[in-house]
Simulated assay, not measured.
Amino acid sequence: MKSTRLFLVLSLTLILAACGGTTSVKPTSQPTVSSGSKAPPPPIAKKGGGYYLDDGPGDNPPADIDGIPDAVPRAEVPLARANRPYSALGTRYTPMTVYVPYKQTGIASWYGKRYHGQKTSSGELYDMYGMTGAHTVLPLPSYVRVTNPENGRSVIVRINDRGPFHSDRLIDLSYAAAYKLRLIGKGSGLVEVEAIDTRPGKASSQPTPPIETPLPPVSQPLAESTTAFVNPVPETMPVNGDYVQVGAFKIESNAEGLKDKLRQNNLVGNVSIASWYNTGTYRVLLGPYVNREEADRAAAQIKQVLSTNAIVIRK
């Protein structure tokens, strides 16, 4: 009987707590804040609610996350065990083992308390309040500058883990880095990622000048700049219809290299493939397809095989 009364009391307590109601602590929008602005930071969520799989900050986050200093670039020896070729979710990746000029635009996601304290690919423990990140092929360790083009905010993080293994994402950031970039409320967002040259004699704290990024290996997602799709249909495209755009490049040889990869993987099918030039950009296009459904299927297959962006456009 005593146990029955205890059960009824606990049940009643839970029901009353549920009736009290709670609201999601996830912000519904993010303010547009330029770098150096004094606008208030986004609210720090408390435990539970609003985040994917209940991820988010810990129970006692630092009082001033914006005050957490960026990673300080320095020359480090790449870890042999962490830079070997590997496979993840059916895709083969070949990491870089030396510095190579790298600048890409793509989607950044972040991870928080769910992985706090767990071991990273470099063997270090993940600190959600450290300025770190994960990348599929950049050397471990290495340093990158990550910029949010929406608000101009920029941070420097140390790459010490592998991921993200989603074809539509470019980099994973620590909770602190995402917070400083104002990406927390959205869960993910568009960023620019640029490798920092830390070799002796280089200005390690500054990003390298803009350099055309070489065509990545097949295993590396090709993150395209948003400006590449402002006018995706070349003026000289001869036939109306549905096309699949796989990439956009400033250097013609990069576009030709991607065309070769599409042919080698039997992804062209019965349509034409060309690198159409317009407004200073070479766009790799396949088509025209019989209809939109055929184009959608082709784009999905290309994305699955090459782990790269493929979008359907219509002229």
Rank of each mutant, 00 (worst) to 15 (best):
Y102N: 02
L138C: 07
G133M: 03
G130C: 04
T91D: 08
A134S: 11
K113C: 05
G106A: 05
E124Q: 14
R114S: 10
T105K: 05
V137Y: 04
H116Q: 07
L125W: 07
S87Q: 15
Q104F: 06
T136P: 07
V137L: 13
M131G: 02
Y111S: 10
G130P: 06
H135A: 08
T94L: 04
Q118M: 15
D127G: 14
K119Y: 11
Q118F: 13
T132A: 13
P141S: 08
Q118A: 08
V100T: 14
G90W: 02
T97P: 06
Q104L: 12
Q104I: 11
P139K: 09
G123I: 12
Y86R: 00
A82I: 01
T91Y: 15
Q118C: 10
R84G: 01
T105A: 11
S109N: 10
Y115K: 15
K113P: 04
S121M: 11
Y102E: 03
G90S: 00
Y99T: 09
V137M: 10
G133R: 03
V100S: 15
S121N: 07
G130A: 15
P141Q: 09
Y102K: 01
V98C: 11
P101S: 07
V98M: 12
S121F: 14
L89W: 13
W110P: 00
T132M: 12
K113E: 08
S87M: 10
G90K: 01
V98D: 15
G133K: 02
L125G: 13
D127T: 06
S109W: 08
N83R: 05
T94Y: 14
K119I: 14
T120R: 08
Y93P: 00
S122L: 03
Y102P: 02
Y111L: 06
S122D: 03
L140I: 15
V98Q: 13
G106T: 12
H116N: 13
M96G: 11
R114A: 11
S109D: 13
